[in-house]
């Protein structure tokens, strides 16, 4: 079991990403693709397993919400470093839809996006295999006080200026 970052700390990953071909275990915590989730959810095939869903970054999370709202974990994808669609998905899941479970970033995830991910409400980060997790942790401190409001609810600069 590899390590990931959750809530700004390095922890052992207690979820398993299940390839679409692999048989569904009857227990444990697994993350499946949206496609797979659609196949298994109705048939009560999931047994005691806890199932998180990984959604393509082209999905409209608002349209998708009825299908995923009760999931304990939603994984958002960064297929390439510069592809920022999942930032909007995460922000909408947190702010508009009020999702309380884990949002985890998977894919081409590097240290240098982590600051932005954190602010968009992504609380679990699975960095690319070559990334040094200790170095990744430093990304949370890139900037102390943000200029704008975001899903993380941090008071932005202008609110602090108001307070004097």
């Amino acid at each position: 079991m590899g390590n990931i970052i959750r809530n700004r700390q390095i922890v052992a990953d207690d979820w398993t990403a299940l390839p679409d071909e692999a048989p569904l275990p009857s227990s444990g915590r697994i993350v499946v693709s949206l496609k797979r989730w659609r196949e298994v959810r109705d048939a009560a095939k999931t047994g005691d397993a806890s199932i998180g869903v990984r959604i393509p970054n082209t999905e409209d999370v608002i349209a998708l919400w009825p299908e995923i709202s009760d999931r304990p974990l939603i994984a958002v994808e960064f297929p390439a470093f510069g592809d920022g669609r999942a930032f909007s998905q995460a922000a909408l899941l947190r702010t508009r839809l009020g999702f309380k479970g884990e949002i985890r970033a998977v894919g081409d995830v590097m240290r240098d996006q982590i600051y932005y991910m954190d602010r968009c409400g992504i609380d679990a980060i699975v960095p690319r295999a070559d990334q040094d997790l200790q170095v990744c942790l430093t990304a949370f401190k890139d900037f102390a006080v943000p200029y704008q409001t975001a899903a993380d609810g941090q008071p932005p600069v202008w609110a602090r200026r108001r307070a004097g």
Binding site: G82, A91, Y116, P146, Q148, A150
Partner: peptide, 10 residues
């Protein structure tokens, strides 16, 4: 507002 906007930087 635009500087390091977390959602709109990529």
């Amino acid at each position: 507002w635009a500087t390091f906007h977390p959602e709109f930087s990529w």
